[in-house]
Design a binder for these strands. Structure first.
Lengths: 124, 124
DNA sequence: CTCTTTTATCGTAATTTTACGATATAAGGG
DNA sequence: CCCTTATATCGTAAAATTACGATAAAAGAG
């Protein structure tokens, strides 16, 4: 079970990494731009921001390392697009984790392996 | 349309705020704990972490201000639970934004108001 | 009223993130 | 080969985040 726990926490780490990457206004905007235009070279993305090229390149690196975008070298430029598999995975994770705590009657135990010893509805 | 644009960017700011709040391992774990136990007082959450009480209190504040959890004063303690409406809203936003860039043929224009002047599939 | 329990907030130090300019690399045109 | 274009990376400064201990406030027990 250690491997499963490790795998779970690796997935969780990846999920948190993605959430953190998206939790920045500039990077979120870059994702929107890429979603709208499907593909952009770095300079085009730079043009949509008030930031320096090097700063945007850094943000692109964060998004790339989080598995949210892909970059393909195209001549002297790099062509970026959304990492569809990564975003799908993220969406699946969000759907898997978050609804479980919001769907009324279903016990929330599935949200974690640990067993809760509290009866529901104590306060709040 | 200014109000709509403002409202949209306010919603976006809220969404980014939520993503940022979740994009921290400790805070993500707190959400998991609350989902599993449904309600916790601060001290119980502190006990699940290696951190000082004041630090956890700070993280709870971030989650609260992001609209992800609710705190209700209960005697000398504060009882926390997940803000179901907030989490539902987050999930709706994620479903609304992210899938649009991943569902194959559908044009991605709906992802943003701006009009793209690029034909799809130039690279990547 | 005094003491205990439980929190939130304040002040502060350490770490991380964010941003910039400068620079090195890579590709292609002339 | 030289020049332009496009990018990533490096070094560094400023800002934000994260963490801690100390402290103040609030509620209840004795």
């Amino acid at each position: 079970m250690v491997e499963r726990a490790l795998a779970a926490s690796e997935a969780e780490a990846r999920l948190v990494r993605m959430l953190k990457a998206l939790g920045n206004p500039i990077r979120f905007q870059i994702m929107k731009t890429l979603a709208e235009r499907r593909t952009c070279i770095t300079q085009e993305i730079v043009a949509t921001t008030p930031l320096a090229q090097s700063t945007v390149s850094q943000h692109l690196k964060v998004l790339r390392e989080a598995g949210l975008i892909e970059g393909e070298i195209s001549g002297p430029a790099t062509c970026y697009c959304i990492d569809v598999r990564g975003v799908r995975w993220l969406k699946d994770q969000i759907e898997q984790w978050l609804p479980e705590c919001c769907t009324s009657d279903v016990p929330w135990g599935a949200f974690s392996e640990q067993e809760s010893q509290r009866q529901p509805g104590r306060c709040c």
